[in-house]
């Protein structure tokens, strides 16, 4: 994570997570952008972005590279949609992302890519272009701390409501001790459309929610409360405050 040879090179120490559940996918990341993890350059950076319907990714690494990469990936997806008249699957998107990272001009980007089409899935895409199918993943400088939380509580049959609480507490735990992660949080919730994929784009959009939180606590409180309301007997594993 330390590559500061170029003066233009902005390293975002970061914590991001992605989790696949029974009815959808949750992606979350902190909002701190920093120079080498030592100076906070931005407190509202968005590191979870949509790349198309049903699909989004988190990134850790250089912001400039990530923005350029996401533009490229969106273009590739759009080309696929026009050429084949259908939506690319999460696996297809991950494969294209891996090839782009491997052959493109990107030095250091770690991605967690998730989506619900044709079913909920999370892929870890490494800086060398490695593409790995995984039920949950973390990336960035705080990933060890986040993984500690995920290893403890993740279950594949959890609903997205439960996974949202798990995702935010994993990020929270990382921000407590990783100085390069912090400030607010972005939480993306992609839910499987029960009708088997709605007929209108607007309709589908309802199943993609990108929430911005000004503080870590607000994110944790909001997401764990909601989970608790849905299934309080479940003894929700992430309500520690």
């Amino acid at each position: 994570m330390d590559q500061t040879d170029s003066t233009e090179y902005i390293e975002t120490g970061t914590t991001t997570v992605g989790l696949a559940g029974a009815d959808g996918v949750v992606l979350a990341a902190d909002r701190r952008a920093s120079l080498g993890g030592r100076f906070v350059t931005n407190r509202t950076a968005q590191k979870v972005v949509p790349v198309g319907d049903h699909t989004a990714l988190t990134f850790a690494g250089s912001v400039g590279e990530a923005q350029s990469f996401v533009r490229q990936l969106r273009a590739e997806r759009s080309r696929y949609e026009h050429a084949t008249d259908r939506s690319p699957s999460v696996e297809t998107t991950a494969t294209v992302a891996g090839d782009l990272l491997r052959s493109g001009p990107y030095q250091h980007l770690e991605l967690v890519l998730g989506g619900t089409f044709p079913e909920p899935a999370v892929y870890q895409v490494g800086p060398g272009g490695g593409v790995m199918d995984t039920p949950y993943a973390a990336s960035g400088s705080g990933m060890q701390l986040a993984y500690g939380r995920l290893e403890d509580a993740y279950e594949p049959d959890h609903s997205v409501d439960t996974l949202r609480g798990l995702a935010t507490t994993a990020i929270r735990n990382a921000t407590e001790r990783d100085t390069a992660s912090g400030d607010g949080m972005t939480v993306a919730t992609l839910t499987v459309d029960e009708d088997g994929g709605g007929d209108e784009h607007d309709h589908e959009r309802e199943f993609e929610q990108f929430e911005q939180f000004e503080s870590i606590d607000a994110a944790v409180t909001t997401t764990t409360n909601r989970a608790g309301g849905e299934s309080d007997t479940d003894a929700e594993p992430g309500v520690a405050t």
Partner: peptide
């Protein structure tokens, strides 16, 4: 799958 699948879903429903 994809849009083709959706079209059929619509006619089925």
């Amino acid at each position: 799958r994809g849009r083709e699948r959706k079209r059929r879903k619509e006619s089925e429903s």
